[in-house]
Design a protein around this nucleic acid. Structure first.
Lengths: 118, 118
DNA sequence: TCTTAAATTCAACGATCATTGAAATTTGAA
DNA sequence: TTCAAATTTCAATGATCGTTGAATTTAAGA
């Protein structure tokens, strides 16, 4: 019932965004969201990356840095990239981040068809 | 006499680069280097940003993440951006970082003519 | 040689971070 | 109402981070 907090994009500073990306698991989440056909993914799709409670921590970091939004549906949650808003605040940055993540072979990947499966 | 360590760019991963940028002082250093006419700056030019010992810590972080190089001359040191090398590893990233830093008014700035003055 | 200047290194500190496992919350289904 | 699934919250841990101030290094100049 309690709404999910999403920060105003105008208040986001650059160092906070980079801090949210300074972790391979979070970078892998962003990459998976970027490379997926669907624009959102179920939170439970990422259990290959970390334990549920650790994932919740990483999801909160990304959300509080303005990079992702979250939406609740039933007992599930879906997250997606705040593409347009982030591009308004820092034009071109998200695309560059995604391109950078793609170039890093050390990042864990996830098969795309896992992202929405219940 | 002991040479300054510069990591091989191939071994740099994306999360390390973002981690080096997750601090306003280090972002301000990168921004100053990017906006300067000269391609390098004396380390002592940044004392507005932090104390000498704290600056040395930040310089090391940037250097170990592959973002900057350092060169000793007499008792001074000069740092510069590893533009071409970084662009080879992560094309377009540095320009995007610089554009992002420019859009963040909360970052401290330095008058450009301080960067080389002895 | 003695001194000064420029910068780093080191030891310490409190703060934040990533991680774990258990407990709590929320919702839909039996 | 009870149960199970999905996810978060909480408390605790060790590790890393940003910061300070003192000590050290290095090289140039008097």
């Amino acid at each position: 019932m309690k709404p999910i907090f999403h920060p105003d994009m105008d208040g986001i500073d650059a160092a906070t965004v980079f801090g949210a990306l300074a972790d391979p698991t979070r970078l892998a989440i962003v990459l998976a969201l970027a490379d997926a056909e669907e624009f959102e993914a179920r939170c439970g799709s990422f259990t290959d990356f970390a334990s549920p409670s650790l994932l919740a921590y990483h999801f909160a970091k990304l959300r509080e840095a303005g990079i992702t939004r979250a939406r609740a549906e039933g007992t599930s949650r879906f997250i997606s990239l705040r593409r347009e808003e982030l591009d308004g605040r820092f034009p071109g940055l998200l695309d560059s981040i995604i391109a950078t993540a793609r170039r890093d072979p050390s990042l864990p990947r996830i098969s795309e068809d896992k992202l929405l499966a219940p």
